[in-house]
Write a protein that binds this DNA or RNA. Sequence first.
DNA 1: GAACTATACGGAGGCTCCCTCCGTTTGTCA
DNA 2: TGACAAACGGAGGGAGCCTCCGTATAGTTC
Lengths: 195, 195
Amino acid sequence: MSATEATTELLTRPKRADARRNYEKVLAAAREAFAEGGEATSLEEIARRAGVGIGTLYRHFPSRQALLEALYVNEVDELSRSAHELDEADPWEALNGWFERLIAYLATKRALAAELTNYLDPDAPVFQSCRASLFAAGEPLLRRAQEAGMVRGDVDFSDVLHMVAGISKNTASDPKQIERILRVALDGLRYSAGS
Amino acid sequence: MSATEATTELLTRPKRADARRNYEKVLAAAREAFAEGGEATSLEEIARRAGVGIGTLYRHFPSRQALLEALYVNEVDELSRSAHELDEADPWEALNGWFERLIAYLATKRALAAELTNYLDPDAPVFQSCRASLFAAGEPLLRRAQEAGMVRGDVDFSDVLHMVAGISKNTASDPKQIERILRVALDGLRYSAGS
DNA sequence: GAACTATACGGAGGCTCCCTCCGTTTGTCA
DNA sequence: TGACAAACGGAGGGAGCCTCCGTATAGTTC
């Protein structure tokens, strides 16, 4: 790349207004359609709901995967921002409060994450950045509970996140059962060898 | 259905030898191809590997879902049968031994189960019968550990199965991490409120 | 072994969905 | 207003799921 090309790139014009509008329309339509139809949702359907042509959808998101990634990132960001509302005195309760939010989110987004795992390794940049968001949100809560001696010290946040996510995303039909099982697994955080 | 039709059905001739052979060929090819390619595996590819035409594949398995169900059932049955080899003195160790087998199985079959959940509710007959197989295999081990006072009494086998399966099927990249997290969750089975 | 028949086969073709290409439209700037 | 590049949308190609039907073959009877 020559200096002229680099300069041209840096001075690129902003997106046109109609393009910006259509981008948001597609993302909103994707959220809604995917929540209803899961993996069976077609991009034609999303384009139709957004009121744009299929070529327009592809102009904004060059593949199905790209669209799903954008949607996933968008939603994880929202979840992470919601963690800052937790301000409870008891470290164990604060950690559990956050997990409750995470669990509620995961219950509704199972199809989206599942499809993305078809395309991507767990170490893919999109998953890494989303994990970073979730870390920033929840890791201080775990550390606080560990420093208060309420949670075992031999787990890190990644472990706990994985454990909770795995249980939440499983296909049990009964939310009560999921709750019960999470209770057991989270009790494992409090277990120590002498007890 | 009239009585004549019911009688005719009961006296149906056995499958021809070539059909039986082809059925097994397709199932074997499906196992191999799906293990390699996951959800991206096409039925044309499976038919090609089996050395049959696509019409033959569909004659034996009327849809993609039907083929995946048959494969899933076949493999869960194999896992369940392997549980009878456990004969360890310590109830906790026997239970853990079985979970290790379950976990190893789940690690290799994630894509298959995930795709089936796109088609089926958790209460679908195929999942119910596979759960029954797994129950018959592992539930006595749990009960033994509970009767020996080594496992809390407020969980049933379904809970434990769901917990272990959920964690095993998650998309962490590191088997060591999965092992560590399962350790924590299974420690939760030993946690009691006074400890 | 031949004849018969029902079972089983395979592949062409239709449909849906992902994706590309390109003629047309439109937003933006001078 | 005119120029121009970005943005549009939809027709069409390819892949994969699935169906239909002419042909082949396994199995039975004589």
